[in-house]
Simulated assay, not measured.
Amino acid sequence: MALSSFAHDRHGLERTDADWLARAWSDPTTRVLAIAGNRMLVRDGAPAWLPVAELPAVAQEEGALRLLVGEHEGATYFAAVVDPARAPHPAEQWQGTRDVLEAVLESERGPLLLHAMGMAEWHWATRFCVRCGGPLTASHAGHVLVCSSKKGCGRQHFPRTDPAVIMLVTDGEPGSPEERCLLGHAQVWPEGRYSTLAGFVEPGETFEDAVRREVQEETGVGVGAVTYVGNQPWPLPASLMIGFRARAATTAIDVDGAEIAHAAWFTRDDIARGLADGSLLLPGPVSISHALIQGWYGAPLATSW
């Protein structure tokens, strides 16, 4: 799974060590990504991880949030998060995560970027204390927000990650020509685009129960056995995708008409023909959907959205 590779050392124990952070920031090997709100500085179509001295002036100022990302191959990485109103470059040089995903897949810095942008998105969306409405101050190198209200609330806020299940439902004798997988077409997608089903986990719900509920709600198909496959960060803005294979207990389709406009069963031959004639569009390798479908299909899928 493309976005699950190349984990970095997040240096969690150093987030409160001011001396360590100062030394790391001043190290000439350190690289920093400037982020304005929730958009990153991009050069030549890729995230611009720069030496501190080459950052835009606004990103070098004390007022910029120096967010520690971690260490990779001996170098330390930060993000400098600034007010987008002060971003000095033309708008086209500041892009969101989705705009650079394909470039990210080609780089071992992918997890660094997802970490930095996920945190920046959290800072961008989390402005006030949920308990008293007071202002928040960054702590722990950007990984904690503390209420600094004069009322003395002091509540700590931590980054939010929303778990979502994503599943490939199958029917028929495994490995046989008649085995099928269930794919859905969302209301907002162009004609011919299909993918695996997915949905957020609700409070008090197991991953497996979430799989069964989401499939039932979206397509009317009942699910029996559910098997874990893998997971992938998806900070767009703040999700963790947990992937599963699921076996259908019933096969009649009755779509909800809200999120899913159409769903269908596909054999491997159906997928091969659809990809060959262009009538079927499947997710590209950036998505865990691609890994789930390709794992079942049994051969590489040259697909991209």
Results as ranks from 00 to 15, higher is better:
Ser4Ala: 12
Ala7Ser: 08
Ala7Lys: 02
Gly12Trp: 08
Glu14Asp: 13
Thr16Lys: 11
Thr16Arg: 11
Trp20Asp: 07
Ala22Gly: 12
Arg23Ser: 11
Trp25Gly: 08
Ser26Met: 11
Asp27His: 07
Arg31Glu: 09
Val32Arg: 05
Val42Ala: 03
Arg43Lys: 02
Arg43Cys: 00
Gly45Gln: 09
Ala48Trp: 00
Leu50Thr: 11
Val52Cys: 04
Glu62Tyr: 08
Ala64Ile: 00
Leu65Met: 08
Leu68Thr: 10
Leu68Asn: 08
His72Ala: 13
Glu73Tyr: 04
Asp83Pro: 10
Pro84Gly: 02
Pro84Lys: 01
Ala85Arg: 01
Gly96Arg: 04
Leu101Thr: 11
Val104Trp: 08
Glu106Ala: 09
Ser107Leu: 06
Glu108Lys: 05
Leu112Asp: 03
Trp124Ile: 07
Ala125Cys: 07
Ala125Arg: 14
Val130Asp: 13
Arg131Gly: 00
Cys132Thr: 00
Cys132Gly: 06
Gly134Trp: 09
Ala138Leu: 10
Cys147Tyr: 08
His157Val: 13
Phe158Leu: 13
Phe158Asp: 02
Thr161Tyr: 15
Asp162Ala: 14
Ala164Glu: 12
Met167Tyr: 08
Gly172Leu: 04
Gly175Tyr: 06
Gly175Lys: 02
Glu178Asp: 13
Arg180Asn: 01
Cys181Asn: 01
Leu182Ile: 03
Leu182Met: 06
Ala186Tyr: 12
Ala186Pro: 04
Gln187Arg: 12
Val188Ile: 04
Ser195Trp: 07
Glu205Pro: 14
Asp209Cys: 09
Asp209Val: 14
Val211Ala: 13
Arg213Tyr: 07
Gly220Arg: 05
Gly230Lys: 04
Pro237Arg: 14
Leu240Trp: 11
Ala249Asp: 06
Thr251Arg: 07
Asp254Phe: 06
Gly257Ser: 02
Glu259Gln: 12
Ile260Glu: 08
His262Met: 07
His262Pro: 05
Ala263Tyr: 11
Trp265Met: 06
Gly274Ser: 05
Leu280Ser: 01
Ser287His: 15
Ser287Ile: 09
Gly295Glu: 01
Gly295Gln: 00
Gly298His: 01
Pro300Gln: 01
